[in-house]
Amino acid sequence: MFASIIASGLAMGAIYALIGITYNTMFATSRVMSFTAGQLGMLGGVFGSLLMLRLGLPLVLGLPLTLLLCAGVGIVTEFVAVRPVLKSLDQHLYVLTTLAVALLIQQVTAIEWSTEPQPFPRLFELGRDAWDEKYWLPVATCAVTISALEFLYRRTLIGRAFLAVAEDNFAARALGLPERTLRVASYAMAGAIGALAGFSGGQLLLAFFANGQLLNFYGFIPVALGGLGNNRGAIIGGLALGLFQQAANFTVGGIFASVAVFVLFIVVLLVAPQGLFGAPASRRV
């Protein structure tokens, strides 16, 4: 049992961490927390199942297409729900617009895809029991994603430009950086990362329209724990959440696990509002 707690805990944790990174990627260039993060994860599973099981495409086509489609959804989000409300960020209208887009995505999926969970294909037929691919795949994907992001941010000028926009949008604009293009690009990137979460976790979560809302909440907890915009914090927070949740699940049962996670979430928010690794709040006056 111990092995399966660890295996499923790390797997779920990796999925939550990836959704947390999706939130962060969008937040970095726009200061917007978008409710579409979880939906992108849901779509990763649904598109994967649609393309590979229903349409019978091989993995080499199915995965890139899924990523592309979700990147497209990310870009649409930027244009429809983020750009129009960026001017009045302090009114928090983005909460409403991104929620609306998230619900549109969810409802269209429910009606056009299915309201029942649909199977997701096995990709490699590798591993058994605790080493089953459905467990290690999300963890591996999370590791690859964070490595790729670290490379992007540390070694490439375009990654530096992302960081610059995230650190000081105004100064970046004054310097002549293409801040708008970079923001759209970050939403596309977030779409792909969310898709990876859903795709790699497809065998665990299945292709189910209601996953979006669940991932929205459980993917946000790592962000709240780690501090907004902190990817490393999100990974630590995500894995910790996954392990805690699965351990509670196996030992005291599902209901109490959910309640415990929720209570923990509120307590952390009250005790460390900026997250355990976050920066202090800015001045108001």
Binding site: M33, H92, N216, F262, I266, L269
Partner: peptide, 20 residues
């Protein structure tokens, strides 16, 4: 959380509560 934190957190808390 709404007593101390930014809007999005409260939205998330209520969403989480609905899920729970």
């Amino acid at each position: 959380p709404a007593l101390r934190l930014r809007t999005f957190y409260f939205a998330m808390t209520t969403l989480g509560f609905a899920t729970i």
